[in-house]
């Protein structure tokens, strides 16, 4: 974000503000709103349901506004700002209630938290609304770890898991730290590293269809390193990446299938899993 305080001229030369200070977290609330995201909605609804169960298990009432749709990221990253703005405006109207918003996807949470305000620089009122919502938006693992301060009781058998973090989720929401923090609480789970772990899986939203060969080469390398990692299971907090990686692993008949961390955590906390 630009330092508007220094020189308000639109021609002012910009610097990139360093994001030094960590986020301050509120006390655990009584209610939250779940923003499900479009990919979860259609392809991984169980992840959304398990997120709801995890939150309810923490004594939190979860609202799911039926009028929500997509955060707008696909249009925004494709250069269709006007369309992204319109979709984002619709979500903002729903989410600006003062109730914390929890998102089971790092990149969609990042979109709301870091990019919504900038989308509305030219509309001061919407921008204020976007800033309020941004301040109140949390990625699921971040929320469980730092707001709920969960202490997970692991009831499952020993498993070795590989963790894949979406690039934007890692960079904008530090999801890798939060997901690792949660996994570390599970006594029966060992997290294994995989080669080039922080490298992009090749999804990249519309990138995977605009540059199919490059994306295909990237996901092939990713599945290879995952299958060589010795993990029994792949988990991720981002369903876009999972759609991509699972699709490739399925195509290659690999014995590994990824699922959302919410589903994994919920399962581990059940008796006899």
């Amino acid at each position: 974000m630009t330092d508007l305080f220094y020189d308000a001229s639109p021609n002012a030369t910009r610097i990139v503000q360093s994001n030094k200070a960590g986020r301050e977290y509120p006390e655990k609330p009584d209610r939250v709103v779940l923003f499900g995201t479009c990919v979860v909605d259609l392809f991984f609804p169980e992840a959304g349901m398990d997120a709801i169960r995890l939150l309810e298990h923490q004594g939190i009432q979860v609202d799911f506004p039926q009028n929500q749709s997509c955060c707008g990221q696909p249009a925004w990253t494709s250069g269709y700002r006007e369309q992204a703005e319109s979709v984002a405006r619709a979500q903002l109207a729903l989410l600006d209630t003062g109730t914390p918003v929890v998102v089971p996807s790092g990149s969609c949470a990042g979109m709301i938290r870091h990019h919504y305000p900038g989308l509305f620089n030219h509309e001061p009122q919407t921008r204020d609304r976007a800033l309020r919502v941004a301040e109140n938006t949390f990625e699921l693992t971040e929320f469980l770890l730092n707001v709920c301060r969960v202490r997970l009781q692991d009831r499952g058998r020993h498993r070795q898991v590989a963790l894949h973090t979406s690039c934007t989720a890692r960079r904008e929401m530090q999801t890798h730290h939060h997901a690792r923090g949660l996994l570390a609480q599970l006594s029966g789970v060992t997290r294994v590293d995989h080669d080039h772990e922080s490298e992009c899986c090749g999804f990249g939203g519309t990138f995977c269809v605009r540059m199919p060969d490059i994306s295909g080469a990237m996901v092939a390398d990713k599945t290879q390193s995952l299958s060589q990692s010795g993990a029994d299971e792949l988990i991720s907090a981002d369903c876009g990446c999972l759609l991509n990686i699972n699709g490739a692993m399925n195509r290659q008949n690999l014995n590994l299938k990824g699922r959302h961390i919410a589903s994994f955590l919920w399962e581990r906390c059940q008796e006899g899993s």
Partner: peptide, 11 residues
């Protein structure tokens, strides 16, 4: 022209 209306950044 590109800098019109803006200040040099501080040192």
């Amino acid at each position: 022209a590109g800098l019109e209306g803006s200040q040099p950044r501080p040192d």
